[in-house]
Design a protein around this nucleic acid. Structure first.
Lengths: 237, 237
DNA sequence: CCACTATATGAATGCCATTCATTTTAGTTA
DNA sequence: TAACTAAAATGAATGGCATTCATATAGTGG
C-alpha cells in the first residue's frame, strides 16, 4: 500500500495518533495565542483547531463545549493575579495590590467575565488558590469570618465592572444631540479630572497620578471601598 | 387577478405595505416580550421577525444590526431606574435608591452589560436623562464637579458587576475536590452570612434583612462605597 | 404624472458550534 | 500473545445564526 509514512507536514490519517496531539494545556495555550492575535471574536473552535493542526471535532475529545475552553483560559489567567500583597503588608495594601492586578488582567479578557461571574469554581484550581490567599489575608486582618465572602464578592463585583470600563471609548459620555437636555451632566463630563494631585493607587499600590479616566474612577472607587469595608469588618449585620 | 385583498392572517405580498408594520417602538416591545419569554438566547433576529409577523430582512430597514436592537432595549430599560431619591432625600438616600433599582433592573438583563458599558450614550435619551438626574443629585450635595463622573463610574462599575452576581448559582463557591487545598476559603464560605441583624439597605433603601447572599454582598459594598465616596467628595485628587 | 425613497419579501451567503460514523492506536486483561 | 475496551483522531453532516442582495410595491415631493 502507499501512505505508509505520513507526509512531513501533511494531513494526519484518521485514528488515534501514536503521540498525543492535544490536551488541556495545549488547548489553553493555543486559545491564549488566538486571543492575543485576533481577540475574542477570533476565538472559534475552527480557528483553534486550525492553529493546533487538528480537525475541529477532535477538540471535543478534550473539552465538552466552547465554554469549557473559556474556563480553561480563565483559570490560567487567575495565576496572573497578584496575591503577594496579602502576605507582605497591611490588609489595605494587600487588597490594593490584588484588586489592581485582578482588574488589569481581566480588562483584556472582558468576554470571560459573564462566564466567571456565574460558573462554579469547581475544577478551577488557580481560581480556588487565589480565593484561599485572599481569604487568608482577610482573616489575618481580623475580619469576622461570616462577612469575608460578602466583602470579597463586593470587591470582585467592582473589579469586574471596572474591567469593562477600561475598554470604553473616550467619548462614551458624549451626549451628542442630547447635550442640550443634560446641561449638568455635560458640564461634569467636560470638567472630569480637571483637578491635580494623587489619591488613587496605581498598579502596584503606589500613589501615582492616574493615566486614564478609567484608572481615576477605579482608584477612587477602590479607595472608597477599602475605607468603607474596613469600617464594617467586625460590625454585626 | 386573484389576490386583490390579502388573506386575513396570511402572508403579506412583497413591497412596501400600505400601513407601517414595523418601527423602533414596536421592535423594542417585541424584543422585550421575547426576552421575558425565552431569555436572551431566544432573542434572535429570526424570532423577532416571527413575532412581528415579518421577514427577518425587514428588520434591517429600521435597525442596522442586532446590537442596535440591544441598544433600543437598554435605553427602554433605563427609564425603569429610580432616580426619584435624589430629589427627595439626602445624597446617601438618593444613591441607595438609584443603585438598588439600577442593579435590580439589569440583573435580569446581564447580556446587555457588555454593550452598555462600552457604547456611547449618544442617541440613548433615557440613559442621558438618568445621568443628568444623578449628576444633579451629586452637585446639589456639594460634590466637586471634576470628581462627579469618576464617582458615578465607580458606582456603576460596582452595580454592573453586582448584577452578574445576582445570577450566580448558590453553589458558585463550592470548591468540590479542591476544598482540601483551600481550608480557610471553604470555612469562610460555610460561615457566610451566619450573623444576624441588618446594616445593608434593601430595595427601597430601607434597612431590612438581606434575603439572598447577593443582596448581602451588594448591601455591604454599596454602604461601604457610599461612606467611602462621601469622604472623598471634595478632596483634591 | 413621474422619479425617488421607504419598506416589505424571499432567496442566498458564510460562519459558527456541535454531532456522528468511522478509523486507528494505546492500554489492559485473559 | 491475542482479544477487548477505551481514547483520540478524521471528515462529513446538521441546524442555527446575522446579514446581504435582488426584487416588488407603495407613498411622496417635484
Amino acid at each position: 500500500m502507499e501512505n505508509v509514512a505520513p507526509a512531513v507536514q501533511g494531513r494526519r490519517r484518521a485514528g488515534r495518533p501514536p503521540q498525543p496531539v492535544l490536551g488541556s494545556s495545549r488547548i489553553t495555550k493555543a486559545a491564549l495565542r488566538l486571543i492575543a492575535r485576533d481577540g475574542y471574536k477570533g476565538l472559534t473552535m475552527s480557528a483553534l483547531a486550525r492553529l493546533l493542526n487538528v480537525a475541529p471535532s477532535a477538540l471535543y475529545n478534550h473539552v465538552s463545549s466552547k465554554q469549557d475552553v473559556l474556563l480553561l483560559v480563565e483559570d490560567h489567567l487567575m495565576a496572573g493575579v497578584d496575591i503577594s500583597g496579602f502576605a507582605a503588608g497591611t490588609w489595605q495594601q494587600g487588597v490594593r495590590c490584588w484588586a489592581w492586578s485582578y482588574r488589569n488582567v481581566f480588562a483584556r479578557h472582558t468576554p470571560l467575565i459573564p462566564v466567571i461571574a456565574v460558573l462554579p469554581v469547581t475544577n478551577a484550581p488557580q481560581t480556588v488558590k487565589m480565593y484561599e490567599a485572599v481569604t487568608a489575608g482577610f482573616q489575618a486582618a481580623g475580619w469576622a469570618p461570616e462577612r469575608i465572602i460578602d466583602a470579597i464578592v463586593a470587591l470582585e463585583s467592582f473589579i469586574f465592572g471596572s474591567a469593562f470600563d477600561v475598554n470604553a471609548p473616550a467619548e462614551i459620555f458624549d451626549a451628542g444631540e442630547l447635550a442640550a437636555d443634560a446641561p449638568l451632566f455635560t458640564q461634569a463630563v467636560a470638567r472630569r479630572g480637571a483637578g491635580t494631585g494623587a489619591a488613587a493607587g496605581a498598579a502596584a499600590g503606589a500613589a501615582e497620578r492616574p493615566v486614564s479616566s478609567s484608572d481615576a474612577a477605579f482608584g477612587l472607587g477602590l479607595e472608597a471601598l477599602i475605607d468603607g469595608l474596613w469600617a464594617h469588618r467586625t460590625m454585626a449585620r
